[in-house]
Write a protein that binds this DNA or RNA. Structure first.
Lengths: 217, 217
DNA sequence: ACTTTTTGTGAGTGATTACTCACTATTTTG
DNA sequence: CAAAATAGTGAGTAATCACTCACAAAAAGT
C-alpha cells in the first residue's frame, strides 16, 4: 500500500538528507500518482488530500502553493533524469578504462536509464507532461542540459570520432541521433507500451546495433 | 490577425464540407492557441470567449461541453496525422512505380510529415499533450494505427526485406525504429526547437542516411 | 411580407477552486 | 516537566469554473 521508499529516494537530493513526516510522504505519493494520471491542472488539492488521507490544510502547511508541490516532485526528477552526466567521475570513466568503444558506452547508458525510467515512471510522466506548460521547469531542464550534459557528451563523441569508430558527422547531429534513438526506445517501451510480447533485452540490442551501424564510419 | 484558413483546412474532414460561421472559426482559433499554450485543463471557457471576441454562451451554442470543443480540434488533427496511410492508393504507389527503394519511401514520408507538422503545429501540440489524459483520444489513435497504419507499413517493410534492401530484423522492430527516428527528428525540430542554426535539409538527410545504414542488410 | 430557424448574447447558477486561519495535537528542547 | 516550536486540522472565503436560459438579431424559407 504505502510504497514511499521510492518517493523518498527520488526526493533525496544529493547531500541533503531531509526528513519527511509520514503524512508528507503520503501527500507526495498521492500527488505524483494523480498528476501522472490526470495532469497537474486537472487535479485539485482536495482530491490529493482525500487520497493521502490528510486534511487539505496539511498540504499547504508544507507547500505554500499547489505549484510548489509540483516543483517539489518535478525538480528532483529532472536532476535524476540527467544524473549520470552530473557525476564527476563520469567523463573519466569513459576515457580511462571502462568503455573502449562508443557502443559499450551506449549500452551502459541505455541499461542505466532503462532502470531509472522503470523505477520512477510516474514522476517522469509528470515531468514530461508539465514541462510544456511551466517555463521554470523548461528553463531548468535546458540549463542543466547545456551546462552539464551537452559538453560532456560532445567530448565523448569527439573522442570516439578521433579514434575512428564514429563517422565524421557533425557532433550535434550524432548527439541528437543518439538521444532520439535511446529516448525513442524508452518512450515506446514505457509511454506507448503497446506491446504485450516485447523482448526488452533483444529490442535494446537491436536499437543499439542499428544506431551503431548508422553512426560507424 | 484572423488566420483561420489553416484551421478551416484542418477541420475539413474528408468529403464533408461543413460550413463554419465567422465566430465559430474565431472560437476554434482561440481554443487551439490557448490549449497549445496552457493546456486544456488550465484554459477556461471565459478566456477562450474573450480571446475570440465572443460571448461565452456562443461557445456552448456550438459545442455542448468544453470537452466537445477539444475533440472538435483533436479528432481531425489525429486523422490528418496518419493521413498518408489512410489514402487508398498509398500501398500501390509504393509497390508499382514511385518508390523503388525503402530509402526513397522514407524520404517522401519524412518530407510529407515535415510539411504537415510545420503547418498544423499548434493543433498537433494539443493532440500530443492531451492524448495522455483522455482515453477516448488514446483509443481512437490506437485504433487508427493498428487498423490502417500498421498493416500497410508492415507490408511495405516485408516487401523491401524480400527485395534484399532491408536486413532480416523483425518487422515490428523495423517499424518501431523507423517511426522513432522520423518522429525523433520532428520532435527535436518542432517541440524542443533548440535550433539556433539548424539546417533542416541536411539534418533530414543525415537522419535518413543513419537510419538506412542501420537497417540495410 | 411574414414565419421559422439559426446564431449570438450576457446576466445568472450552483459547484468547485486554491488557499487562510484560528485552533488542537504532537514533538522537541531547555 | 514546562515551554516552545512544529505538525495537523477543517470550517470558511472570495474567486472562478463550466454551463443554462430567456431573450435579441440575423438569415433562410415560404
Amino acid at each position: 500500500m504505502s510504497e514511499y521508499p521510492w518517493i523518498q529516494e527520488l526526493l533525496q537530493m544529493g547531500g541533503k538528507e531531509e526528513q519527511f513526516s509520514e503524512k508528507q510522504l503520503k501527500i507526495l505519493e498521492a500527488a505524483v500518482e494523480m498528476f501522472a494520471e490526470k495532469g497537474y491542472a486537472a487535479t485539485s488539492t482536495s482530491e490529493i488530500a482525500k487520497k493521502a488521507g490528510v486534511a487539505e490544510g496539511t498540504i499547504f502547511r508544507h507547500y505554500k502553493t499547489k505549484k510548489d508541490l509540483l516543483l517539489a516532485i518535478v525538480t528532483p526528477t529532472l536532476f535524476k533524469s540527467v544524473a549520470p552526466f552530473l557525476a564527476k567521475e563520469f567523463v573519466r570513466e569513459v576515457f580511462d578504462n571502462e568503455y573502449e568503444t562508443y557502443e559499450q558506452f551506449l549500452r551502459a547508458v541505455l541499461a542505466n536509464r532503462y532502470a531509472f525510467v522503470k523505477k520512477y515512471l510516474p514522476a517522469i510522466r509528470v515531468l514530461w507532461q508539465e514541462v510544456a506548460f511551466h517555463s521554470e521547469i523548461k528553463q531548468c531542464l535546458q540549463g542543466v542540459f547545456t551546462e552539464h550534459v551537452y559538453p560532456k557528451f560532445a567530448r565523448i563523441v569527439r573522442h570516439f570520432q578521433e579514434k575512428g569508430e564514429l563517422a565524421e558527422l557533425p557532433v550535434d547531429s550524432v548527439i541528437r541521433l543518439t538521444i532520439t534513438s535511446l529516448a525513442g526506445f524508452l518512450a515506446a517501451r514505457f509511454l506507448l507500451l503497446l506491446d504485450h510480447n516485447w523482448d526488452d533485452e533483444a529490442e535494446m540490442e537491436r536499437t543499439i546495433r542499428v544506431l551503431m551501424n548508422g553512426l560507424r564510419r
